[in-house]
């Protein structure tokens, strides 16, 4: 069910949701964060609308929301929305 999202090395938290927004699993910083799950779901739906409205055959691959010190990476697969909160790779 989790598809290994809880084992991503630099993950600070994760949420797995159904298409209707119901949280299937969560952990780390995002554990039991229903408010964040709802906002992330809204963002995902808006993003998918962009692709639908552009009449292109492009398939949704990934949505990233990037701040200086962390980012949310969102993907959709098998009727599930997977969200991972990640810290960026340290710059040498």
């Amino acid at each position: 069910m989790m598809q290994g999202i809880d084992r991503i090395p630099d993950s600070a938290g994760h949420i797995v949701m159904k298409e209707d927004g119901a949280v299937v699993a969560s952990g780390g910083d995002l554990e039991n964060d229903e408010v964040m799950a709802d906002q992330l779901m809204r963002l995902t739906r808006l993003s998918l609308k962009v692709l639908q409205s552009s009449n292109s055959s492009a398939n949704f691959r990934r949505l990233s929301v990037i701040w200086d010190d962390f980012q949310y990476v969102i993907t959709v697969s098998n009727h599930r929305v997977f969200v991972c909160k990640r810290r960026p790779d340290p710059v040498v």
């Binding site: 963002l43 962009v50 692709l51 990934r62 949505l63 929301v65």
Partner: peptide, 22 residues
Amino acid sequence: QAAQLHPDSKTSPVVCLETDQS
């Protein structure tokens, strides 16, 4: 909507929407 995820942040986030082509 992306900025609402962390409204206390001083900067607004960059949103990157990737497809298989662009």
